[in-house]
Design a protein around this nucleic acid. Sequence first.
DNA 1: AGCACGCCGACT
DNA 2: GTCGGCGTGCTC
Length: 832
Amino acid sequence: MPNASLFQTDARIVRVALPVPVDELFDYTVPEAFAAHARPGFRAVVPFGARQLTGVIVACGASPAVSNRNATRLRPLVRILDREPALGPDMLDLLREMARELLCPVGIALASALPTGASPKSVPAFELTERGRQALAHNVARGPSRTLLKLLADGPVPIKTLERGVAQADDTMRTCLRDGLVAKTLFEKGATAKEATARTVELAPGVDPDLLAENELRRAPKQLAFLREIASAGCTPIADLRASFPTAPALVRALEARKLVRVGEKRVPRNVLGARVTCVPAPQLTDEQRAALEPIEGAIRAKTAQTFLLHGVTGSGKTEIYLRAVAAARELGRTALLLVPEIPLTHQILTRLRGRFGDNLAVLHSGLSVSERFEQWSRLRRCETAIAVGARSALFAPLENLGVIVIDEEHDSAYKSEEGFRYHARDLAQKRAEACGCPLILGSATPALETRYAAETGQIQRLVLSKRIASRPLPRVQVVDLAKESAHTASGQRPILSRALERAISDTLAAGDQSFLFLNRRGFSTKVLCYECGKAAHCKNCDIALVFHAHDQLLRCHYCDYSIEPPEHCPHCGAGGAALLGLGTQRLEEEVRTRFPEARIARLDRDVSRRKGATEAILTSVQEGSLDILIGTQMIAKGHDFPNVRTVGIVLADLGLHMPDFRAAEHTFQLLTQVAGRAGRAETHGNVLLQTFSPDHYAIRPVCEHDYEAFYAEELEYRRDLGYPPFTKLIHLLIEGRDATQTKETIEGLARTLREKLPHETSPLAAEAAFEILGPAPCPLARLRGLHRYQLLLKGSDAVALRSAACALRDASARLPSGLRARIDLNPIHML
DNA sequence: AGCACGCCGACT
DNA sequence: GTCGGCGTGCTC
């Protein structure tokens, strides 16, 4: 028997990363009972001030040497939540490194990688006391008290849950509390999400339905049919059988009495996949696909952490390459991770994966409930399944022995986390791939400039799929120059639908096919767009669109704060200037309904999709052909294949161009290309009508010609000229506060300090080239949720100088006057 | 972040 | 007299 007091004095100490916005670790002592699991990567519930938090242990030791504090003042941790580490050593290292690099408090970075999300909520709960444990062990308690104690055997249970499971819950709880058998505590909702169990039924050993059919059960056809079903399905949750046997529970009872079936309780993951998918044989690869696949398979076999850009036009069969890569990894006994930008796309790629690999997959995205997500995550951690599919945060899926990582639609900005741990999944995936020696495939028809440029400089390998499979032609894109559409309606308003688009819709309607009308409403109604020529006012310094501010009646640049009075006349065409306001999907819908009163029309945008199920209902009716015209925002740009869409109308292609963002052209080109790709995906020959005021704009013309490279060449030159990424790095600082003056003065102070410090921060030789400080200026969203927002942008190519400037900004914003909040974003995508 | 402690106005 | 407003400061 080891001496117990020895363990007491040798109490272990752990360093815990907590989800609080201070970049520090907090030390706790470990009660003996938890010593076995007080290891790095395990989640711990700890007291923190007046509350309890769940954090991740990142280091442990036996002496206070690890601590920066006197060991006697340490508090003990409350509980360890895991039996196996929630974050493996590799993931822990990766996250800590990235947190440091992106200037994010470790605890926040680690929390975002946990299956239960960043901030599990606590609910009041009961747990067993030592006395309660004794009472349970020695079978002392009786009746409802015993039920209560049994429910608490595995740890704390929320009071709400207990109320449902215990007779006379209120009294029982009060009694047990009074007798010191249970104690009040907090239950971290989701943190200890239990995996669901279900009552299952299976055939009793030796039972053969065919034999029974002949005598015993001849007069009970229902029971016989039921037996046959479970004979073929094996051990099945009873609830699942209710679909085909409404009286399943009664049948089970009858059959159990006859000892023909066995009832059990099994851990059954809830079905998050949806209806069954039939197996689809792998298609023949085209020569191009074969050529692209070869180096990928080579890298998988060789365990090379190489990044590939799979650059393929819409419909060129990129997904098939992903499937083959997954298959290659699986054949070597390795696992695979696929990321897609948003939830609807997971379903699409899942269907393909299930058709090839069956249903042994894990899905991870925010559309799942906390317990569903935990369940999927646990299956991966227990290595029950080897393929994970999901949105951005699925990057942290606990897969061992990764064989390949795929990022589909890699250019999508959904891969950039915009709050908390502000990482880009693409960058992190590259790090993860390096850490575990596996290739990373970045797939896109319209790669991000940075990605395409990395291929040009040889950092990554570009694989091209230039042809659509089955030689289907790309849709014909016809440009409608709105400046030449002179007709005005009687009301004097310019019609939204050009004559050409109206004709195309009406032809499509006559043919019984579908039309999509796409209006990119994103952005601001406050940008100034000339009514006659469609051009917007741009900043002379930054070349981004100026935004109109009602309060001071000025056009303002949100990067450098340059401002001008709105011109009386359009500087481009001389027309009396007026903002093109109020063009939204609703007005478009009105106009379409007036023009095509007989058509079945629906609108899909953020307003509509807020209603639960509305999106699915609309998409289904498109699928079924019970809709003629669908009007929508970018929500209809991606996702599902719609075979009967013959005509796609892009109502005003220019809208995205005037976003106050240096990536406006890139995003516009990517979005429009994606929208155009919606037309005629199957047998129907697609037809796209693109209405624009700027048919010759370099982000619009290549859409019509399906010419990514042309766009890329021009955009790259623009980036080079103005010193934007990929030629520089950006650091974005945002400060928001209730008081406009205080916020403005604070950020001005920060900028001043930085400017004064600048010469010391850089080597004399690089003094000029180190970095620029743009602003401070109001953010494009100058007020948000009652807060005034200002931003500062650092831009430069000297990574070391930028880094130290970023650290200086971080340190300064850590001690801001109260009421102000700062956030810092390295390599920002959206700066609103 | 959140929660407690602390110091000043309108209510029983 | 106290209930409650939210300013500020700390959490192993």
